[in-house]
Simulated assay, not measured.
Amino acid sequence: MSALPDLVAVLAVEVAIVVVAMAITAWASLRAGRYSVVDTTWGLALAAVSVTAAVGGSVLGAGEPWRSWLLAALVSIWGIRLSWHMHRRNSGHGEDPRYAELLAGSTPLQRVVKVWMTQGAAVLLVGLPVTVASVTAGGWGPLVPVGLALWLLGVSFEAVGDAQLARFKADPANRGKIMDRGLWSWTRHPNYFGDACVWWGVWVLSLTTPWSLLTVIGPLAMTWFLVVATGARLLERHMAGRPGWAEYTARTSMFLPLPPRRGTRRNPRETR
C-alpha cells in the first residue's frame, strides 16, 4: 500500500488526540462520580478523529479532499448531536446501570482498561475507514449515494428515536412505563440501529481502493459494541424481569426494525 507512510502519520496524530481526550474524560468522570461521562466523549472523539484525518490528508497532499471533508462533516454532525444528547440525558443523574454492572468488583486499574483505554481503542478502530480514506485516492462512484443514503437513514432514525423517548419520559403519566411507541414499537433499540447505519454508510463512502475493504472492521466493531459489548445486551440484562418486559420483547424486534409481531397483546400497565 503506497499510502502506508501517510496513514501511519495520520494515525499517530489521531492516537495523541484520543489519549488527550480520554485523559480529560477520566478527570471529568472522577469529578462527576460516574463513568458514563465517557458516553459524551464518544461522539466528540470520533468527530475529532475524522477532522484530523481530513486535515492530515490535505497537509500531506494525499487522498481526495472532497471525500475526506465530506466524511469529516458527516461524522461531526453525527458525533456532536450524539454527544449533546448524551450530555443532556446523563447530567444530574447517577451512574448508568450498564457501567455499574460492567465495573462491579473491578480494581482501579481494571476500570481504566475497561472504560478509557477500551473506549479510546474503539474510537481509533471505528474511525479507521475515515482515516484510510483520507490518504487514498478514489473518484466519485455509484457507492457514494448509497453511503449518503445509509448515513441519512441512520442519523434520522437515531435522532427521531431519541426524541420520541425523551418526550415519552418527560410526560409524568408515563413514569415507570415501557416505551413501546413510534420507532420503539418496531425495534427495541432504534438509537443503536441508527448508529450502526451511520457507520455502515461512512464505510461505504470511504471505499476508494481494494485496500479499503479491509476497513470493514470499523463498522463491524461498532455494530458489535452496539449489540453485544456495551449496548443492547447489557441494557436488556438490566431490564429483564421488569413487569411487561417479556411481552414487549415477544412482539418487538431486538435490533432490525420489523413490524410488531401479532398475537402478543399490549399491556397498558407495563413498566420500564
Rank of each mutant, 00 (worst) to 15 (best):
V135W: 00
A9H: 04
Q164R: 13
T187A: 01
R242I: 06
W203H: 14
A246W: 09
V126Q: 06
A232C: 00
A250I: 03
A62L: 13
V18F: 08
T208K: 02
L220A: 14
V202T: 11
Q119A: 08
Y99L: 00
G79S: 03
S50A: 13
E247A: 11
L103P: 09
L124R: 13
T249L: 04
G201T: 05
V216H: 09
V13F: 05
V155M: 01
G138V: 07
L128S: 15
H85S: 00
L44E: 03
P190Y: 11
F168H: 08
W69I: 14
M179S: 03
R181Q: 11
A47N: 11
P5M: 05
E14F: 05
D39A: 06
M1L: 11
E158Q: 15
A72C: 02
G147M: 10
W42G: 02
W78M: 10
S206T: 00
V8A: 13
W140C: 08
H87V: 11
L152V: 15
R261C: 08
G43S: 08
I80R: 07
L205S: 01
A32V: 04
I80W: 01
R242M: 12
T131A: 10
R262V: 02
A166H: 09
R181W: 08
G182S: 07
G92C: 13
A246Y: 11
A229I: 07
